[in-house]
Amino acid sequence: MKSIYAAVVLAVVLVHLTEAEDVQCPSCPPGYNLQCVKSVACESDADCAAGSVCVDGSCLLGQCESDADCPSGYECTDNLQCVESTGCKTSKDCASGFVCVEGSCVKGSCADDTDCPPGYECKGLECVPAGCKTSLDCAPGFVCVGGSCVAGECVSDSDCAPGYTCSDDRQCIESEGCTSSTDCASGFVCVDGSCVEGSCVDNTDCPPGYECKGLECVPAGCKTSLDCPGGFVCVGGSCVAGECVSDSDCAPGYKCSDDRQCIKSEGECGNNADCLHGYICNPRRLECEPGNCGNDADCPEKYVCNTNKERCFPNPCKWNRDCPPLYVCQSANQCRPGKYKPV
């Protein structure tokens, strides 16, 4: 009889607790949880009976432990019951797929731009590609058209790989051919109806002084240096880099060096200031010659720095006197150790 009475009392207590706003009893006997129900240890809700949840390692009567356990628009109360939500402060207070707008959880993915990934902005509670200046401002899979990011992989043919063109729906598709080089991407020309790598098809594609050979613009054949572009001179019927072929191509007081550069001529320097970079005035011959150096960068082209003497020497050499002390100029026009010592 006593056991039946105790069960009835316990049932009344449990019903009262589930309806009460405060789940914590003022004082419970040892071995009972905060709802004054005999404690049942648990690790997850699966360890608890139906109508109970696992909270801090103990099964308690209720439906939820946090708002995430409740349906959208509901929140978990202190007595572990899911009730209709009365509002929100931030989107974190809302269920997944909902955001907080003016204190209410509404369906959406964003409330402002800060909720969206880079390259997107919040419009109509959804993250959409943001405004742009170039396609680099857009997310992958989008291109910039009229200041807006739209789905696609190209805006023009130049955005596609060689042999492909940009379709009306902004996709790179295999090209059916070409009629002129303007149909090809940059760095390609039209040859026999196909885009191939190159800079020219004929001489008309090249700047003055150049001709088309092997689909590339190269300095043209010449009769005089006037036939060559700037920075080139005519040597043996071909345009080669340089500013002179002979002394007559240089200004008065200058002569043409072996590397086709105009340098101060003999007898025309009084001090180092009269010579070009990398040259000094020989006080005995009054001639500009490769001068003092700390490294090869201080020397003219085709000269190297002998750091022991801090002087520039030709490389390759022409005469033994071109080489440092105890070096000689060998047949390969290289300075190598030898017994000759220049005066």
Score class of each variant (00 low, 15 high):
182 T>K: 15
191 V>Y: 08
177 G>W: 05
298 D>M: 06
107 K>W: 07
43 E>C: 05
316 P>Y: 13
9 V>T: 11
238 S>A: 08
35 Q>S: 00
260 R>L: 11
148 S>Y: 12
277 H>K: 14
199 S>K: 08
208 P>V: 07
252 P>C: 07
6 A>N: 03
279 Y>L: 12
150 V>P: 13
140 P>S: 11
52 S>G: 04
104 S>F: 10
48 C>P: 10
7 A>I: 12
324 P>Q: 08
26 P>N: 14
103 G>R: 01
130 A>K: 05
249 D>I: 07
219 P>L: 03
277 H>R: 06
203 N>F: 09
218 V>S: 03
330 Q>L: 09
211 E>S: 15
81 Q>P: 00
4 I>Q: 11
115 D>V: 02
8 V>T: 04
301 E>C: 00
127 C>S: 04
276 L>W: 02
99 V>F: 06
70 C>D: 08
225 S>L: 04
122 C>G: 06
185 A>T: 08
153 E>A: 06
269 C>E: 01
199 S>Q: 14
87 G>V: 08
232 F>V: 10
286 L>T: 13
42 C>L: 02
324 P>N: 00
244 C>D: 05
202 D>T: 14
271 N>S: 14
233 V>P: 02
109 S>T: 15
86 T>C: 03
95 A>Q: 10
265 S>Y: 13
151 A>Y: 10
64 C>G: 04
141 G>M: 10
197 E>L: 03
45 D>F: 11
310 E>Y: 14
253 G>N: 01
288 C>Q: 11
117 P>V: 04
275 C>P: 03
309 K>N: 12
8 V>A: 10
243 E>M: 10
177 G>P: 05
69 D>C: 06
211 E>R: 12
298 D>W: 01
133 K>C: 00
76 C>N: 13
140 P>G: 05
228 C>M: 08
2 K>E: 03
144 C>D: 05
103 G>D: 12
8 V>P: 00
105 C>H: 12
65 E>C: 05
281 C>R: 11
167 S>D: 07
69 D>H: 01
151 A>T: 13
322 D>S: 07
252 P>Y: 09
